[in-house]
């Protein structure tokens, strides 16, 4: 698990993870927000179906791919989470689907 330090403040915002409501702080990335909401595995691979979680948080590894507002394979660690954002994990959906 990951936790914010107790004396850390920030503006709260709401978004959804696979349809369920979740909270984040303004300025956090989608990948950080997922980790802080307790969602670690964000996808399974298109090659073997193995589970993966964000690894580098700096845009290098492409492990943090998630579907954001209906658009698949977005690097969660490079996108700032927004109020009302719909984030979906890609577990069991290794390959990008057309139109998503």
């Amino acid at each position: 698990m990951f936790q914010r330090l107790p004396d850390i403040r920030g503006d709260a915002l709401s978004f959804t993870i696979d349809g369920k409501a979740a909270q984040a702080r303004a300025g956090e990335t989608v990948a950080s927000a997922l980790l802080l909401a307790g969602v670690e595995t964000c996808r399974t691979t298109p090659v073997s179906g193995a589970p993966r979680a964000p690894y580098c948080l700096m845009g290098v590894c492409f492990e943090c791919l998630v579907t954001i507002d209906g658009r698949g394979n977005q690097q969660g660690c490079l996108v700032t989470v927004q109020d009302g954002m719909r984030v979906e994990t890609q577990i069991g959906r290794g390959k990008r689907e057309l139109g998503r």
């Binding site: 298109p46 090659v47 394979n73 390959k95 990008r96 689907e97 057309l98």
Partner: peptide, 11 residues
């Protein structure tokens, strides 16, 4: 020249 995309579900 060629372009290749990420892995996509069969279409």
């Amino acid at each position: 020249q060629l372009i290749v995309t990420e892995k996509t579900a069969p279409f």
